[in-house]
Nucleic acid binder design. Structure first.
Lengths: 201, 201
DNA sequence: CAAAAAATGTTTACACCGATAACATGTCCG
DNA sequence: CGGACATGTTATCGGTGTAAACATTTTTTG
């Protein structure tokens, strides 16, 4: 078809370029889909379909499916960081803030099961709580959490003590979240509180 | 081929029936395969292929892929129970035995990553540590673990205290195992000890 | 401004997967 | 022997991720 009919095809704010920026659209659709089903049911083709584009178009923006999922993880970590900051803000400093953080961790996992799973299954992605290993990056605003934990142990506690405490707390909330997500433990708020509130003992 | 050459085809202890019991062979091949790769790469077709049988033959013994995986989980739980009993046996009763148990949990997870993941992802399967929910079955020899935990809290401790302690300990070791399996935390034995040995604090 | 270059999207194709249906074969029991 | 049954196979379907070749649009450049 060499003739254009009536539609302007110069980029009119919404129909710019070929699609308008795909890549963002793909990430958006991906996030929308991943919250409505198991993580392994998330297919590249379905994301593309929902974005109104051919399956192989995805490969112009991501080298493969894993890369697209990686982008979803990144956005997920940003959201989790926001949830942490909010929890941190609405609690007085000290143990209370620490527990609020733990609750926020579990709450986020339960609210976005597949996304959470995906985030944690990304071995090279950012990490919510930096492990005691050298060079463990740590994600966006998570320094807040680290500071909170370090504060609990006192600023003069040896590094390895603070690090072990960090890992212990992380393991506890992570394990609880996973067990609930996998259906091994019921999602009763009382249970969650009982575990989380003991995380610093 | 209407003639049989030399092999007897009456069931001679090993070549009985069509295959000699498939189903067991499938489970065996499945367990062999799942320990040499990621869990989601475990395909029904590959298991059948390795068992020297057509893909659809599987459906004579399992209604679908999930059922076959379920059978793998069952065997996995049996093995984990064995590991627990061994750990329990080689430690003096009390806190020491309890910590040995936690270490055994993490050790099993690291030794059989995909199988462990599969076992834990089975919402309806047996559960290594019965959660505080009513009717939580608990797997094979796991009553030993429950008894050990209950012993730590004293026999006169309220039920909900013992149950919360159980869930806390389980969450801790499970979270640690998962974080290591997902590559979020390095698998350093010192770290594992630091976390596990604090599980009853 | 026009033509070359780059970016973006589509069609086609392949190998793999889980699952169903129809068919073939071996085994057991009357 | 001969049917009834259990078991295994082939053919096929819709689904997936991905690569190759092609088409189109935007950008860049002479």
């Amino acid at each position: 078809m060499s003739e254009k009919d009536n539609t302007v095809n110069i980029h009119s704010e919404k129909n710019r370029y070929h699609h308008g920026d795909l890549r963002s659209a793909l990430i958006e659709e991906g996030l929308k889909l991943i919250d409505t089903g198991p993580a392994d049911a998330l297919s590249l083709r379905e994301i593309a379909r929902n974005a109104g584009v051919s399956a192989t178009a995805v490969y112009r923006h991501f080298p493969d499916k894993a890369a697209l999922l990686g982008a979803l993880c990144l956005e997920g970590h940003a959201r989790m960081a926001k949830a942490f900051e909010a929890a941190m803000a609405s609690a007085s400093p000290g143990v209370e803030a620490f527990n609020a953080m733990g609750r926020a961790y579990v709450t986020f996992a339960l609210a976005h099961p597949s996304l959470f799973r995906l985030m944690m299954a990304q071995p090279d992605g950012p990490v919510p709580v930096p492990p005691p290993s050298p060079g463990g990056g740590g994600s966006d605003g998570m320094q807040i959490l680290v500071n909170a934990i370090d504060g609990l142990f006192g600023p003069d506690a040896p590094a390895h003590v603070r690090e072990a405490g960090r890992l212990r707390a992380w393991s506890l909330v992570h394990g609880l979240a996973m067990l609930i997500l996998d259906g091994q433990v019921p999602a009763e708020p009382a249970l969650i509180d009982a575990v989380v509130d003991a995380s610093v003992l």
